[in-house]
Design a protein around this nucleic acid. Structure first.
Length: 585
RNA sequence: GUGCCCGUAGCUCAAUCGGAUAGAGCACCAGCCUUCUAAGCUGGGGGUUACAGGUUCGAUUCCUGUCGGGCACGCCA
């Protein structure tokens, strides 16, 4: 990347303009040097608005400043010409040779093209998915998984030291409800029929787990129904009334009558669901470096210690028998309970401990990918970090809007508890991993995603991932029919590539590293998806207008080298998104 | 009711911390396969960037208000 033969143009030109700005003795040397790619060919390849920024402090009109800057601009071997345009833009035109050399760079760097060291090895953690292990992942989780995985890959490519983490909520009430649900299903298998609460987990996977326990342990966990229903109103015997109190009583009874066996069932369902989740995600191309247990924060005293720390700093107070954190000191709407009247810590309490733990592990930047419905939770978490003396700016919360499912043109219901949901696994099996991964990151993460199941399942040519993959397969096909060795193309002379389409393609390849950097900086993997579609589009157009296997060897090799480079960049981009790059379609 | 996010072509979405004539895909219309993969390409119509003000050389972008939509407002997780 840093070879003087292959400069990073934006950086290179920024240095030239910095020198020019200093030379004309600007009173404000702190201006940011901005270089942007132009939209129109008549505006050159790169544009700089420095003259307009300096016009005011220099008390001169922008075009005059532009003239001074150009006069002071050090010579560059890559520039064909420099022009003043519009209100004072300075447009840079690259020499053809400067563009052509990027083919060599791509073919030499191979899968590393697009990688940079701009992240400087900074330790950064991305926490995502973190779904309750109480049932199969659904298509909503899928979006967080796809965005988190792609963003992690992008950050890695941009030179960050990335750690992917899944926070396992194994300590809460939801796990108790799943444990109870499984046990009730197990009792049914033993001909003990207790009305199954509506707000318990209804899914078939609960029955499956009950069968596994039944097969392995027969009637070992059977208890008399009267004990199970102890203390519950008589009416529940006939109905499936389902209040939280009802459920909590059942859970309490289960813990009482099962004793040590409760922990066994709890652990069994947790292990089952976590294993299922892990496999599901692995098949989706999503893997984690760390699966972090919430329960461990209780077991090793982290939660109690963290709360004590907040208390020492005078951010806690007691009211109505509960312990509150004064989050309003940090802009939250109201104070929040960290320890309930019954002595139980809240989820918020363990979450504070968790975030403190993240920074204790040395991460310089932490990114949480959350569903947008959690946005109200941000002020209290950031507030807690601030209270603990940490910089809340080091925690970045990326909100992901839920995917809204459409089936037969209507919204599909989504509720884990009721069992009416489309699972991620189902989606993968029907539309394929590639389509699902690409589809999920096709739009900005803070935008709603309308997921048309019928369209996604139809395998029609409307699926955008095929368009990009097809470009890759087409290049493979051409190179397979050429009787040379692709490795030799690195030596090809690119001077023959001078048509507008070819020069535009060369510039597009040059743009790839910038796009990766931008995606990393803005936490926006969708930029990669858009880039790939644009590159594929330009290639398809080029393919239809130009023959590659032409008789003139120099021209043939130059064109083949170009499409080989395009193939490499398409593959690198698709890899970032977890999409495969097939050789044939 | 309060807070946060959003409102761009018929539909789904882009637009590089404020830049030049706001761009793609789908849909619609008209064309292109005896030539390297037609899952492709070429051309066409489509817009007061919800609305009204403000800030400045310049606003889809920033500020205020109105309208419309989403989400959140537990001693749940």
């Amino acid at each position: 990347m840093n070879s003087s033969a292959h400069p990073h143009f934006k950086t290179h030109f920024a240095e030239l303009f910095r020198a020019a700005a200093n030379a004309i003795a600007t009173p404000d040397a702190n201006v940011r040097i901005e270089l942007t790619r132009t939209k129109q060919a008549s505006h050159g390849d790169y544009s700089c608005n420095l003259a307009m920024q300096l016009a005011k402090p220099l008390h001169k009109n922008p075009r005059e400043v532009a003239g001074l800057l150009i006069d002071a601009l050090p010579a560059s071997p890559y520039l064909e010409k420099v022009e003043i345009a519009g209100a004072g833009f300075i447009n840079l035109f690259l020499k053809h040779s400067a563009k052509q050399q990027c083919v060599h760079q791509v073919l030499q760097s191979k899968e590393m093209f697009g990688h940079s060291d701009s992240g400087q090895g900074k330790k950064i953690q991305v926490e995502f998915v973190s779904a309750n292990p109480t049932g199969p992942l659904h298509v909503g989780h899928g979006r967080g998984a796809a965005i988190g995985a792609s963003l992690s890959s992008v950050l890695t490519a941009a030179g960050f030291n990335v750690s992917r983490e899944f926070y396992v909520n194994d300590a809460g009430r939801q796990m108790d409800i799943l444990t109870l649900s499984t046990w009730l299903r197990y009792l049914e298998l033993n001909d003990i029929h207790i009305p199954f609460p509506q707000n318990a987990y209804q899914g078939d996977y609960v029955k499956s787990m009950a069968r596994l326990i039944h097969q392995a342990h027969a009637e070992r966990y059977v208890h008399h129904p009267e004990l199970v229903l102890d203390g519950l109103p008589v009416t529940v015997l006939e109905t499936v009334v389902s209040t939280d109190e009802h459920l909590d009583l059942l859970i309490a009874n289960a813990k009482k009558v099962l004793g040590q066996d409760y922990a066994y069932i709890h652990n069994f369902v947790l292990t089952e669901q976590l294993g299922d989740c892990r496999n599901d995600l692995m098949e989706f191309g999503v893997e984690f470096d760390t699966w972090f247990s919430e329960q461990s924060l209780y077991d090793n005293g982290s939660v109690a210690r963290t709360i004590q720390l907040l208390n020492d700093k005078k951010y806690l107070y007691e009211q109505d028998g509960a312990i509150w954190f004064r989050s309003t000191d940090f802009g939250d709407e109201k104070d929040r309970v960290v320890q309930r009247e019954n002595g139980q810590f809240t989820y918020f309490a363990s979450d504070i401990a968790y975030h403190l733990n993240k920074f204790e592990r040395g991460y310089e930047q932490v990114i949480n990918i959350w569903g947008a419905d959690h946005h109200g939770y941000i002020p209290r978490v950031k507030g807690a970090l601030q209270a603990l003396g940490l910089d809340p700016a080091k925690l970045e919360i990326a909100l992901v809007q839920f995917a809204v499912l459409y089936r037969d043109g209507k919204k599909a219901p989504m509720s884990t508890r009721s069992g009416e949901f489309v699972t991620l696994r189902e989606l993968r099996e029907e539309v394929g991993k590639d389509a699902a991964r690409f589809f999920y990151v096709m739009r900005k993460s803070d935008q709603h995603l309308d997921f048309d199941l019928d369209l996604a399942k139809s395998q029609s040519n409307e699926n955008p991932v095929y368009y990009v993959q097809y470009a890759h397969a087409r290049v493979c096909s051409v190179l397979a029919q050429w009787d040379g060795d692709a490795a030799d193309l690195i030596e090809a002379d690119m001077a023959a590539l001078s048509s507008p389409a070819e020069l535009a393609l060369l510039q597009k390849l040059i743009d790839f590293p910038d796009t990766v950097e931008m995606a990393a900086k803005e936490f926006s993997p969708h930029l990669i998806a858009f880039y790939l579609r644009e590159l594929a589009s330009e290639f398809h157009s080029y393919y239809n207008s130009t023959r590659f296997l032409v008789p003139e060897i120099a021209l043939q090799h130059a064109r083949l080298a170009l499409i080989a480079a395009i193939r490499q960049v398409l593959k690198n981009g698709m890899t970032l998104l977890g999409v495969s790059a097939p050789d044939k379609m």
